[in-house]
């Protein structure tokens, strides 16, 4: 099938050189579309989708079953003994502290995730603009360094960063920066800073790729009209950047929301600031005796990312396509 479509597509473009550029670039795209919409490809896609959804669907069914049933039989026996209860959700959301009380940790997760996402978006946009359109010495080396940082395991920085928060910086016995000593609700600041630091390399990389593709004439025209870097950034780059910002925002939001390691270390196991993931990991009990609660807990943790994804989905698709068509 592939060999049949390829020559015809090529002939079509060769026979009509007077066609416009946009139609010519439609050639390979059409070929890919034809290949991907074949019967076999569609069947494979459906099979993969079902395979990937079955465990989640099973978890969803399980979360509505009574605790004894979850522990004794599998979710696939649900049709033979349909018993629906909301007890799991009630226990997990509003129960005693041992049961999870996820409602308050849900708030913690939001408090941690929103600033961590906004900081990364703002700082990464500024840095990406500077790296792409402001000429300064060593610019390429800075960019390469940030690019390499993406791959450095964040575990490398956990001990130094934690020490920085708790003891400050001192060189040779001289205190240069004091310890932060943030307690109570202020302890969120540690997590924000940590997540922002870990999110920036990928953010700068993605936005830089996008900003660097903007046409130079745009910037020249703005400069001729008397705009400085600040005005160019606010009035031209930011509006054009919106799809990329939304894509990055979704990535960063999901990453922070689902993160366990950073939260575990920088909230210090304090249940007043612990996000959902930390509580969820302890939900099963110290010896795993209450694992039936995980079914409802997992769905509580999934709801917010799902809402965010579906609300921003059309921006997301636009963001992925942005820059693919020029004209």
């Amino acid at each position: 099938m592939t060999q049949a479509t390829t020559p015809t597509a090529r002939n079509a473009t060769e026979e009509s050189p007077e066609r416009t550029a946009s139609q010519r670039t439609g050639g390979p795209a059409a070929r890919v579309r034809a290949r991907l919409s074949g019967t076999a490809a569609s069947a494979a896609a459906v099979v993969i989708a079902v395979l990937w959804t079955v465990p989640t669907a099973g978890l969803f069914v399980s979360s509505f079953r009574p605790a004894e049933q979850i522990r004794t039989t599998g979710w696939w026996t649900f049709p033979t003994s349909p018993e629906v209860t909301l007890d799991n959700y009630r226990d997990v959301l509003f129960g005693t502290a041992g049961d999870g009380r996820l409602a308050s940790h849900l708030v913690n997760s939001v408090v941690i995730t929103l600033p961590s996402t906004v900081f990364v978006l703002g700082l990464a946009a500024l840095a990406a603009y500077a790296l792409a359109w402001i000429d300064f010495r060593g610019r390429d080396w800075v960019y390469l360094g940030i690019f390499a940082l993406q791959i450095v395991p964040l575990q490398m920085s956990l001990v130094p960063l934690l020490r920085f928060f708790s003891q400050g910086v001192s060189v040779g016995g001289v205190q240069i920066l004091p310890a932060w000593e943030l307690t109570g609700a202020m302890a969120f600041t540690n997590v924000w800073v940590a997540h922002t630091i870990f999110g920036l390399p990928l953010g700068i990389f993605l936005l830089h790729n996008f900003i660097a593709q903007l046409p130079r004439s745009l910037f020249d025209a703005a400069r001729v009209d008397g705009a400085g870097h600040g005005r160019i950034f606010l009035r031209i780059v930011l509006p054009l950047l919106t799809p990329a910002l939304v894509s990055l925002g979704i990535f960063q939001f999901l990453w922070v929301w689902n993160d366990l390691l950073v939260a575990l270390i920088f909230t210090g196991g304090d249940s007043a600031t612990a996000p959902l993931t930390v509580q969820l990991a302890e939900l099963a009990g110290t010896r795993g005796e209450d694992w039936h609660r995980l079914t409802a807990g997992a769905f509580v943790a999934m709801v917010v990312p799902l809402i965010v994804f579906f609300l921003l989905q059309r921006y997301f698709v636009r963001g992925l396509l942005a820059g693919s068509v020029k004209g």
Binding site: L144, F147, A148, I151, V152, P153, Q155, M156, L158, V159, L264, I265
Partner: peptide, 30 residues
Amino acid sequence: QAFQQGQVGQGSALAVFLFLLVIPLVIVQI
């Protein structure tokens, strides 16, 4: 090691080891 048993040195050594494992991949990417 680092955060439960208080062996910060051993934990840091493991982190550095992880970094060493990743360096060849970083070079490929660059």
